[in-house]
Computed example of a mutant assay.
Amino acid sequence: MDASYGDISKMIDHSLLNPTLTLTDLERGCRLAVAYDVASVCIMPYAMARCTELLSGSTVQPSTTIGFPHGGHTTAIKQAEAIRAIADGCQELDMVVNISKVLSNAWDDVREDIRAVIDVAHAEGRKVKVIFENCYLTDDHKIRLCEICGSLDVDWVKTSTGYGTGGATREDLQLMRAHSPAHVQVKAAGGVRDLDTLLDVRSIGVTRVGASRTAEILDDCRQRLGLEPIVSGDLKQGSTTGY
């Protein structure tokens, strides 16, 4: 490996979005994320305030979803979700595009939907990842979305929710990196379940991945680097539910 542990751990957004996770699962997941020092926890919106409390004092960012998972909320509701998430301490917002509008080629509406969340978030110094849900889109749709997101200065373009019919593919990641300006980062979600896959997408230029198998990925990373294992007790229970 030509990367440090921190290089790898800070690529991971630990996913706590499965609707069957209990409050106990969510709190355990936040503590696991701190133990492994990942980039962020992406948690269900109702738990955002508690997540912020649990991550306080760590370098792990609290994040949540907007318009998740289908993107069909009205723009006003997405903006309201963003305002509430920020009030609850959210630092990074993962928003789903209006997939129906994308498939209808209603590009002005798509742009304004994204802009509404970007304007709220960037005004407060927060970051936005825009989820395309590529499994439903053509390459032309994906390219147009990359162009729109680049013009709006989004922080990341993201492949998937993890709950569509497919997740991140190498081909999609290459396409998104090729058609996004340099200042827009790329996130893979859905399908990054082991260290080798993470290293592969990293080689393409991906800077974040959504994962629920965080402990397994980072335990492997530490073993390969000759580092002591992280003793996390019961934190790993249920850690593979989701992406």
Rank of each mutant, 00 (worst) to 15 (best):
M1T: 11
Y5W: 02
I12F: 10
P19R: 01
D25P: 12
D25C: 10
Y36R: 08
A47L: 06
A49Y: 14
R50E: 11
L54F: 06
S56M: 04
T65A: 07
I66T: 05
H70M: 10
H70P: 03
T74W: 01
A82P: 06
R84P: 01
A85R: 12
Q91F: 05
M95V: 07
V96P: 05
V96W: 01
V102S: 10
A106R: 12
W107K: 13
D109T: 11
R111Q: 15
R111T: 14
E112L: 14
D113P: 13
R115F: 14
A116V: 05
V120W: 05
A121Q: 02
A121S: 07
A121K: 00
V128T: 05
K129F: 05
F132D: 07
E133L: 00
T138L: 09
D139P: 10
R144Y: 06
E147Y: 06
L152Y: 03
G162I: 06
T169W: 03
E171V: 01
D172H: 04
Q174T: 11
L175W: 00
R177H: 08
P181A: 04
K187A: 06
V192W: 09
L199Y: 08
D200C: 01
S203A: 08
I204L: 12
G210S: 09
T214Q: 01
I217M: 10
L218V: 13
D220F: 02
D220L: 03
G226L: 13
S232Q: 08
S239V: 04
T240V: 04
T241P: 00
